[in-house]
Design a protein around this nucleic acid. Structure first.
Length: 576
RNA sequence: CGGGGCGUAGCUCAGCUUGGUAGAGCGCACGGUUCGGGUCCGUGAGGCCGGAGGUUCAAAUCCUCUCGCCCCGACCA
């Protein structure tokens, strides 16, 4: 029973200057969220209702999948993070603080440490396994660059679940149950999504999948194939395109002047060779060492793959000054021959079959041509470091891969024993042996999913809520609030719908029709019921759907039934 | 962290180059008008020009520092 005049909604015509993506713009304009600081938002009443609906759907499906809800502290002691090793590794994204006794804490960005600590204190035997604990809670990650409103906030609501089992089979079972639950959740939200293979990042573990809502504004790039293969580009593999000139006889190696030609396309054009015949040498820096990574000139390095191959915690391109010091030449003239020993060499598969290739000479304005593995230098250790591009052959079926963008709304991991070993979360098995528990972890961004839903469900005039996430189910609008008959009919409809448990927002404001219609479109409640002079004169109210705007005038007496029928058609379980 | 930009009314922004009494539109208040797609007209309130220091007779405007925000890149579930 909510009247707009007594509620707290403030819509605006103007788009805030910092809102780039449509979901952010609409959430601000429709009065769903309000920014307090960079990446930190107040959920306004309308927005909070949608977030609460999202959370309820998640709870329902998690409970159905056998997970058990609890709530862990947001503030966590540093010791736990030191124990897992992530206090050092997690970096600046971890918001750290000290209490009055100068003890170190962090605001939890995730809860592996806390939940593992909890479980190791309580659980001793395989007979107490498996189980899956989840919570819906505010996290904080001090993102380098928060943006896009709720899509990439620093403070955000997340559902995180952690499964504990005694065997790999129990982990597989929990993982599968979560996969199904996620599918059910995103289907319930009427979202178009895909599940793709993913890198495990700082969370760690053996295998993981991401749930991506398809959107051009998505921050993640994913490759997909009609055969069913799908992966985050960070993880994606492809079959190798054939190397050029694999059968050529070796030529003489020569140094040639290439004044000012520092990019692969420039060098290739200048020397009259295809870029595929150039070996690109990129100098990276990790926390341990400098690395020269080789990739074929027409391709790019996948830095996530490189970081994994190097088992490094941090990886970044070396600065220009460092490159000059290490290679003895300006940026763009580095090559694998004659580098200082302190540089570790690693090559992508794409360079393995090259013959008579071109590379930098580690000398100003000079490249080497006619270079061959074995004769001129040994082939360095080879790994898959390739950033997959659109059109590359699918690793499973060979068909050209497609590249698209998505919003990562869920991520499930098989953690294995990474945390249980580090934190000695052990149990006793049937044979009396002590073993680490086998864990999984399953994240789902609540606010981000709501934002993604808007990204996928809007038009030029505003949000078009899918019914399950809509802050209200019905928007009841009076066009002339001063008219007694109008008010009487609307008040009665409002009361009756409310009595049936239908969530109605009653726009009883004394505003011009245009204002109320614009607000109705912007706020995007699925079903709109208008009580106004024109139709009321004929004894009717007007019912319309936000999505297709199809209007129908129905007699006042039949209004209630018509509304219930339409909600039922949208999948709402109507009261008897 | 590197590069770029912006902080002036509640919001979106002019004014700054060339220093001289603070502006517009929207929103808000009041009066009239209008009344099924952000009516129209009038009146009014509202600003330590992000903060500190400096130059100057005089600073929103020039200089220095600082804080905050935004964009691009690198980073991340």
């Amino acid at each position: 029973m909510t009247r707009w005049s007594e509620f707290y909604v403030h819509t605006t015509r103007e788009v805030p200057s910092d809102a780039e993506v449509i979901s952010h713009q609409l959430m601000v304009r429709a009065g769903l969220i309000k920014k307090l600081a960079a990446g930190i938002y107040t959920y306004l009443p309308l927005g909070w209702r949608s977030v609460a609906k999202m959370a309820a759907i998640v709870r329902r499906e998690m409970d159905a999948a056998g997970a058990v809800e609890l709530s862990m502290p947001a503030i966590q002691p540093a010791e736990l993070w030191q124990e897992s090793g992530r206090w050092q590794r997690y970096g600046k994204e971890l918001l750290r603080m000290r209490d009055r006794h100068d003890r170190e804490f962090c605001f939890g960005p995730t809860h592996e440490e806390v939940v593992t600590d909890l479980v190791r204190r309580d659980v001793r035997s395989y007979r107490q396994l498996p189980f899956n604990l989840y919570q819906i809670q505010t996290k904080f990650r001090d993102e380098i660059r928060p943006r896009f409103g709720l899509m990439r906030g620093r403070e955000f609501l997340m559902k995180d679940a952690y499964s504990f089992g005694a065997t790999e089979a129990q982990l597989d079972e929990a993982y599968e149950a979560m996969r199904r639950a996620y599918c059910a959740i995103f289907a319930a939200c009427k979202l178009e999504y895909t599940m793709v293979e993913a890198d495990t990042g700082t969370i760690g573990g053996s295998s993981s999948h991401e749930f991506m809502v398809v959107a051009q504004t998505g921050e993640s790039a994913v490759v997909s194939c009609p055969c069913g293969y799908g992966a985050n580009v960070e993880k994606a593999e492809s079959r190798l395109a054939p190397a050029v000139a694999a059968e050529e006889a070796p030529e003489e190696r020569r140094a040639v002047p290439t004044p000012g030609k520092s990019s692969v396309p420039d060098v290739a054009a200048f020397l009259g060779v295809p870029p595929e015949r150039v070996v690109k040498t990129l100098i990276y820096e990790t926390e341990k060492e400098f690395v020269a990574a080789l990739v074929r000139g027409d391709r790019e390095i996948n830095e996530v793959k490189l970081q994994n191959a190097l088992a490094a915690d941090h990886l970044a391109l070396a600065s220009e000054e460092k490159v000059e010091r290490l290679t003895g030449a300006a940026l763009g003239f580095a090559g694998p021959i004659g580098l200082p020993a302190e540089l570790r060499l690693i090559a992508d598969e794409s360079v393995r079959e090259l013959r008579n290739f071109v590379c930098g000479a580690n000398e100003a304005d000079t490249h080497l041509v006619g270079v061959n593995w074995g004769r001129d230098l040994p082939l360095p250790p080879v790994a898959d470091l390739l950033l997959v591009a659109a059109g590359d052959p699918c690793p499973r079926c060979g068909a050209p891969l497609q590249l698209s963008r998505g919003i990562e709304v869920g991520h499930i991991f098989k953690l294995g024993t990474k945390y249980s070993e580090a934190m000695r979360c052990h149990f006793t098995d049937e044979t009396g042996a002590e073993r680490p528990m086998i864990m999984g972890c399953y994240g789902l961004g609540i606010g981000r999913t709501v934002a993604a839903a808007i990204e996928q469900n809007h038009d030029a005039d505003g949000i078009v809520w899918p019914l399950p996430l809509a802050p209200f189910e019905v928007l009841l609008v009076t066009l002339n609030a001063a008219d007694e008959e109008t008010r009487r009919v609307a008040d009665e409809l409002h009361a009756r719908l409310g009595a049936l448990g239908i969530e109605v927002l009653y726009d009883d404001r004394d505003e011009r029709p245009g204002v109320k219609f614009k607000d109705a479109d912007l706020v995007g409640i699925p079903l709109r019921v208008v009580v106004g002079g024109k139709s009321l004169a004929a004894g009717q109210v007007e019912i319309s759907h936000r999505r297709d705007r199809a209007k129908e005038a129905v007699p006042v007496a039949e209004g209630l039934q018509s509304i219930l029928a339409r909600l039922a058609a949208e999948g709402r379980k109507t009261p008897a």
